[in-house]
Structures are given as C-alpha cells and as structure tokens.
Design a protein around this nucleic acid. Structure first.
Length: 742
DNA sequence: AAGGTTAATGTTTTT
DNA sequence: CATTAACCTT
C-alpha cells in the first residue's frame, strides 16, 4: 500500500479513495478531517490522476490553505507547483484579475476593506439625502453584503426584497455603490466571487475553459459556504463532476455572515449520485466530552446527524465536565486563574489550555487576572496589525500610488499630514467627480487647472498631485520597500509622527518601520497590497508556552487539553441579540457554537456561569444558560459552593421551560411557573419590555447583595442611583436591591 | 482648519 | 465604563 494511505481507518480510506464523482464527507469534530483532505490531494498527485494545475482546492482561511499546502508537500516529499490552492477569495481574485477587462475593471483593481466600503456608502447616502441616523451605513452595508452573499447583482434583486430598508432605497444605493466601485477601479470582498459569477454567465467560453481545467475540486469547511460560493463551485464542477466537499453541519457558525447550512444539507440533491461518507470516529476527546457534546447538539433539529464515538469509551471515560457557578465576572476570572495555576503546578503546558468566550469583550477580565497572576497568555484575534491607524494610513499612500483612481485612499491621505487641502477644496472636487463620473484624482487634476480654487488651495493641491506623479514614476525603477520609505518620508507622514507629542507616537513609528521590511517578501508593490487585502493578519505567530484566550469562532479547528468555557448565561450565551435577530435558526447556531467549544477539548472542560454581570454601568442578575440544562447530567459534576450551583437544572432541558426563543427568559415569568428555580436572589426578576417603574423612591433604604446598605438618591426608570454606605455611589438595576429590612 | 466637547453605543467577523 | 463618531466652537 502506498505510504500516504497507511494509518487511515477504513472510512477515512474510503473518503480518500473516492476520487471520482461528487462526494460529501461529513467530518465530525476531531475525526481526522485534515488528514483525509491532505491524503486525498496526495493520492491524486501520487497516482498521477491529475496534474497540479488541474486541481482546485478551496478553503476559507489562509491558515487552512497554508497548512494544507505544507502537509501535502511534506507527505509527498516535494513542492507542488501550479495548483489552484487557496481561499475562495484569493482564487476568485486570481480569476478576476485574468479577465478584469471583461468585468469592467483594470488588472490592478483595488480590493476595499470593510472600512472603505462603509465610507463609500456614507458618501453615496449623503448625496441621496438618506438619514444616516435612521439608516446607519453599516446596516445598509450589511444588506448589500447579504445580497452579494446570495449571488445577487443589483439587477437581480427583486423589487419585493428592497422595500424594508432605507425606505425602499437600498437597492438604489446598491446600484450606485456598484457603479462607484467601477469608477474607482475597485471591488469589495463580495465582488470577488460575485463578479466571477457574472463573468461565467456572460462568457460561457471562459467558464468552459475553467470547467475543463479543474478535473478535481476539493472544498474544505463546506458548511460555511454562502450561496455565491456555492453557485461558483457548482458552475466550476459541472465539467468533470469530481467535487469533494468536506464539512460538518454541526459546526456551521457563520450563518450571520451569509453562510447557508442548507448548502451542505442539500448536497445530495444538487449532485445526484453523490457518495456521502461519515467520519464519526473521534481521535481527540474523551468519551465524556463526546457524550456531553453529542447530548447538547442533539437538541438541534436541522442536522444531518452523526454520532461521534471513540474507542476508549468504556475503558476510560475521562474526567467529568466541571460546572462552576460564580458570583460575578471578577469571581469567574479569579476562579479560572486559580485553576490555571493549578494546572501549571501540575506541570501541564499552558499552551494546551484555552479560554473560549462568546464575545470579544469577555477577554478583558481574564487578561487582567492572568496579568496580575503573571501567567503568560495570548489573545488570539485581537486588533490586527494592518488595522492600526498608522498602517492603514501608510497603506493608503501606497494604494493611491499603485492605483490612481482609489478615491478612498486618496481622501484618506490628501490632507494627512495637513497640507492645506481642506473641506472646501474636497467638496469642490467631489462635486466635479460626481458630475463627470470620474475619480477624485482626475477631478482634482482638472480643478487645479481652473481658478475655481483660492490660490493657496490651488498651490497645495498641485503640489500634492505633483508628488503623486513623481512617486508613481518611481514604481517601476525602484524596489518597492524603498519606494514606500520614500513616499512616507517625502509626504511628511513620518515627520508628522516624529514631531507628535502623543504618547503613542513612538509605537506608531515602530510599526511603520516594521512594515517596510515586511514588504520585501513580495515580488511587487501590487503583490504586497493584494496580500494585505486578502490576508490581513500579520504573519508573526507568537510562540511560547501561553494560555490562549479567544472567541469560540476563532477556536474552530483548534484543540486543547483543557478548555474553559466561561459566561454560559442566558442573554450572553445564547446571545440575546442574536436570538432577537435570527430566531430559532439563530438559537441552533448558538448551540453549534457551544458544541464547537466543547469539542475543542481533549481531556478537560470547565464551564462557568456568573450569577451577576455588570452590563455597562448597571448590575444585572443572570441565569445559567439553557445549554447547561441540555448537557447530560451524568457527564457533569457541580463544582464548589453548594447552593449556588443551578441544582435541578442539570440533565433536563432548561429549554423545556423556555421552549421557544420568543418566550421571555424564565426569570421574567411569574414566580412558581413551570419548573423554574426560584431566583437566586430576592427580587431578581426584572422587566425588559414594559416601561419600568421602580418600586423605590428617592430616600428609600435598600440592601444590595454586593454593595450592602444604601440610600436611593435618584430614580431613572428601572435604574437606581444609590449612595451606598460603604461602596460609594453606584447605578444599580431596581431588581437588584431589596427594601432594607432593619 | 483645528481642537475640544457632547452624544450614542455597545454580540460573533475565516476573507 | 470606555470608545468612537458627530458636532460645535474658536
């Protein structure tokens, strides 16, 4: 047997060897998915079934693509040249650049990021007199993005779908937005796929060429594809029909970004005669963790159904999951910190420990605690290098040099540092640009020729345009890192920070210095700019033995010995806002997120829920997440102070009490209703929807569990301003205090 | 054109 | 509370 096939279990082997025809591999968490993917690619190449250039392998992240490339090359023992391996977006870009002129673009088109998109939209909305207050640009952006996710160009959006947003003007804005992008010789992320679709539609000959080319297509994380990606794949696969999609419907957590679980659920209908292979043997987690995760995810309706199992099931089930009830966020961080120190004392590597949270803001308390304890940690997915202000500014300079029509970049730097090109000048330029349907640079050039501007402004503008011309002339005769250095110096941008007295100025200069050598890795300025647009993340993988803190979304695909899952509370997780927006479907996605969290753990899971949390400036009572109630009781042990734990919750579905997502959380229901626990704290029932009026008036003596006795100093709806005897003046929810008894 | 003040607004975010 | 964007004043 060939070496790349050895060590695979029978089902994995089946998945690797099923090369022809449509194949769906349902790969549960920890079942060796990556192994199968890479082996399949190696199998294709090793058996010479396909040349590298005939293989299309698509992933969602650059990380996944890089890992796949690396593992295939290691297994094969040689580098692979010329294959189409990359993210949906990078391959979409590659195809689009080859045929740019057919899509109304030039080859050097710019890829805009979310920030630029919003700024562009704001401009269009302002011109259309749409109230930014009523319809924030971000919301409209979301609407447009969603259309793009579904593969819809403006002319394909049906009138009925338009009405709800921006008084029926969203489609109009979308149309203008697309027009404007073409003028700017720019695309956004959605376009990278969408314009591929349009290209394939208008030029069947081009499509046919790719259909012939890609004899074998491989797709990772298929459950996360949106409609546009799905259509793209389906078109490309129509030639040879050798498409293999790998995914796990239970790990679909990007629905809010347009991913359609439906794509994976209906694969067999889309590709008749498809083989469906289920990878169910888990090599990662203990039997207990698997049982808990399976028990939880069984509460979802929309799933293909898989049962994960492990060979050690009966022999050594592993530790029970631990459930800990804590007083508040601070207490939670303290508890997690202590547990981590205990692991440290037990000589467990910190790198095998992770804290996985629902939302980014939750990381702060853990960071603070670990910092105090001196436990090394890293936060994954924080603010990224290329999102820093100074880097974005520098990038804008380079963009505008590389592509003169990139208005958003132009606007960003035209008066940075200040060179006397202010509002008035720009307003005139904008007006001219809009009237003539040209880019801002072009408009500015024209403006500098007329005497519409005051002499000072005119001189400043001409000066800047001359600089741009000079820099552009240097693109071909200078190495791009040197060019960048020159641009940043001559523009006065670096000087601006050098002279700045701001505390963060030195740091910003350091970052700029760091950027220049990083550019040398790319063959050209354009190559560097594309990398930044498509990859965004800095390649500096910090190493060392550290605890990882990240969101559940960021944790997908990773694994750790010990996983802490804090914040398992109603409202936070499942997230209230998500539920409000997405209903029952969203609840299932939240549950999948919980499932992803549990299945990251190899040996140990510690779940916590806080009884109170500070939300902005008020304290609120929190109930344990319904997901806690959905965990099989046998697999979980209650940890710590008895009485505080949600006894009686465990092992029965908490969602029995709150069966639908619309029903209010249990603590809002009348006392004694159903099987609800009595509130842990007297008076913790709180009104949400009704306009709240406080039971208390100014001057009332009250008692608070955390802050002790105090006097009500002011009442604002259900919020009380209380002067506490010991804790000082605080704003507190009405529901959180009781009348002082003494 | 620049700086300072006030008001709004707080999930997840592979590309 | 803490951050950011919009606004208003000089």
């Amino acid at each position: 047997m060939t070496p790349h096939l050895s060590g695979l279990n029978p089902v994995q082997l089946q998945a690797v060897e099923a090369l022809d025809g449509p194949v769906l591999v349902l790969a549960g968490a920890g079942t060796g998915k990556t192994r199968v993917l890479t082996s399949r690619l190696v199998h294709l190449l090793a058996t010479a079934r396909a040349m590298p250039s005939q293989i299309l392998a698509v992933t969602f992240t650059n990380k996944a693509a890089n890992e796949m490339r690396h593992r295939v090359e290691v297994m094969l023992g040689r580098p692979v040249e010329g294959w189409w391996l990359g993210t949906f977006h990078s391959i979409g870009t590659r195809i689009l650049r080859r045929h740019a002129e057919l899509a109304g673009l030039r080859t050097n088109f710019t890829i805009l990021d979310a920030d630029d998109q919003v700024r562009l939209l704001k401009q269009i909305m302002a011109a259309e007199h749409i109230d930014d207050k009523k319809w924030p640009a971000r919301v409209l952006m979301g609407v447009i993005q969603r259309w793009k996710d579904r593969g819809l160009l403006p002319e394909q959006v049906t009138a009925g779908e338009d009405s709800e947003v921006a008084n029926g003007g969203a489609l109009n804005i979308y149309r203008q937005y697309q027009e404007r992008l073409r003028t700017l010789n720019a695309v956004d992320f959605g376009d990278l796929l969408l314009l591929n679709l349009a290209l394939f539609k208008s030029r069947p000959d081009v499509l046919e060429d790719y259909q012939r080319r890609f004899r074998y297509i491989l797709v990772d994380e298929y459950q996360d594809t949106n409609v546009s990606q799905y259509l793209w794949l389906r078109l490309l696969a129509q030639g040879h029909r050798n498409i293999c999609c790998v995914g796990d419907d239970d790990q679909s957590i990007y629905g809010w970004r347009g991913a359609e679980v439906g794509n994976i659920l209906k694969f067999e209908q889309d590709f008749p005669g498809a083989q469906v292979i289920r990878l169910e043997q888990n090599y990662r987690s203990t039997a207990r963790i698997l049982a808990a995760a399976s028990g939880l995810i069984a509460h979802n309706q929309d799933r293909l159904g898989k049962t994960l199992w492990t060979e050690t099931r009966d022999v050594e089930p592993g530790e029970k999951l631990r459930l800990r009830s804590v007083w508040d966020g601070e207490d939670e961080a303290r508890f997690v910190g202590e547990e981590i120190e205990a692991l440290q004392r037990a000589k467990q590597p910190l790198a095998q420990t992770a804290i996985l949270v629902r939302a980014g803001f939750q990381t702060r308390e853990f960071e603070e605690r670990l910092m105090t304890l001196g436990v090394p940690y890293r936060v994954i997915g924080g603010p990224r290098f290329y999102e820093r202000q100074e880097i974005r500014d520098a990038m804008a300079y380079l963009r505008v040099v590389n592509q003169p029509d990139d208005d958003l970049a132009f606007e960003r730097v035209v008066n940075l540092p200040r060179r006397g090109i202010g509002d008035t000048t720009l307003r005139a330029a904008h007006a001219l640009a809009r009237a003539k349907r040209v880019s801002l640079t072009t408009a500015c050039r024209e403006l500098a020729q007329t005497d519409e501007l005051k002499p000072a402004a005119r001189r400043a503008l001409s000066g800047f345009l001359n600089d741009l011309d000079r820099w552009r002339a240097a693109v071909d005769r200078m190495a791009h890192p040197e060019l960048a250095e020159m641009v940043l110096e001559e523009s006065g941008y670096v000087a601006m920070w050098r002279e700045s007295k701001a505390a963060e100025a030195p740091g910003r200069l350091d970052n700029l210095k760091e950027m220049i050598p990083a550019m040398a890795e790319f063959e050209s300025l354009a190559g560097f700019l594309e990398h930044v647009s498509l990859v965004m993340e800095a390649t500096t993988e910090s190493q060392g033995d550290m605890v990882s803190i990240m969101t559940l979304h960021a944790a997908k695909g990773l694994e750790f010995d010990t996983v802490f899952l804090p914040g398992w509370e109603e409202e936070l997780f499942p997230n209230r806002r998500t539920l409000d927006e997405g209903g029952a479907k969203a609840l299932e996605e939240e549950r999948r997120l919980a499932y992803v969290g549990l299945t990251r753990a190899r040996r140990r899971v510690i779940i916590t829920h806080a009884q109170h949390r500070r939300v902005f400036n008020a304290w609120i009572a929190c109930l344990p997440s319904r997901f806690i109630g959905e965990l099989p009781a046998d697999e979980v042990e209650l940890d710590g102070a008895p009485g505080l734990a949600p006894a009686g919750q465990l092992g029965r579905a908490a969602s029995d009490d709150a069966p639908t997502w619309r029903s209010p959380p249990r603590w809002q229901q009348p006392r004694g209703f159903g099987r609800s626990n009595p509130p842990l704290i007297e008076g913790s029932a709180r009104e949400i929807d009704a306009t709240p009026t406080s039971r208390f008036a100014s001057g009332a003596r009250v008692f608070h569990q955390k802050f002790g006795y105090g006097t009500v100093a002011g009442v604002d709806g259900d919020k009380l301003d209380i002067e506490f005897d010991k804790a000082g003046r605080k704003k507190v929810m009405d529901s959180f205090v009781q009348r002082a008894t003494a």
